[in-house]
Amino acid sequence: MAEVSRRPPLLSILIALAGAAFFLVPLIATFNFSLRMTRGELSFAAYRSVFESDTFLSVLGFSTVASLMAIALGALIVVPTAYWVRLRLPHMRPLIEFLSLMPLIIPPVVLVFGYVRLYGTSSILPLTMTETGTNILLVIGYVVLSVPYMYRAVDNGMAAIDIATLTEAAESLGASRPRTIAFVIFPNIRSAIVSGAFLTFSISLGEFVITSLLNRPAFGPYLVQMGQDYAYQPAALAIMAFAFTWVCMVLMELFATRRPGQRLLQWRAPRTVEKAKS
């Protein structure tokens, strides 16, 4: 028995290394490739070329605006729904949770064809006939895709603070429902909403299927087009998109783990918050 415990977990290490290699090798290879646009030297020429393109900036701007609108709309739908379900319809939670998972089950291509059929030329609400209408459909599509993540983030945030009792505590102190939501509920789930927002942002920014089939000039289809037309720039774009997603994740982690009374970057501003015993 003692011999077994003394042996290093060789198999575990090998599996971890294989797993890491599976992710890291393509990433390193792509990064390396993206630096070789100028023959014979390593340079950021591909990145420069991407940033110099007007199309890049315009599609990135379009996608950013569409994603931000999806975040706002998603939060407006999900936060009151999750609050109300937890407060008044707790028996509906399994159903709502199931519904929130539907976008993961139904492929986006089915969703977008449904939209095109429902809101197409012969519809009473022909959204696809105008540019604004199509943009609205795009944002709605992004909202639908992000609902599983947004709902889960917000619902978990609410689970962590016992929304029902806090609401009752605020009401017994004289607060109306709107004041309760504004001063008690919202500040306590802000980090959950921010997490949901970052997830929504990273999903919708690079989204391809819905964007492409609605023919919108956004980042996802641009990335695919670049992949067909060029060699080095797509690699640079992939690396940038990857870095961007990671920045989103780090920000999410920072917001999600922050406690009240702490600064966002607390290691820069050390405060003596411990020594609770007195």
């Binding site: 016992d162 009792t165 009240p260």
Partner: peptide, 27 residues
């Protein structure tokens, strides 16, 4: 409930996590 002027203490404390002790009492 908000207009009854009745104070309540809950089993699970139900302090507002985003507020300091002072702000909780002042709410």
């Amino acid at each position: 409930a908000s207009r009854r002027k009745i104070g309540m203490v809950f089993q699970a404390y139900a302090l507002f996590p985003n507020m300091s002790v002072r702000d909780n009492v002042a709410f």
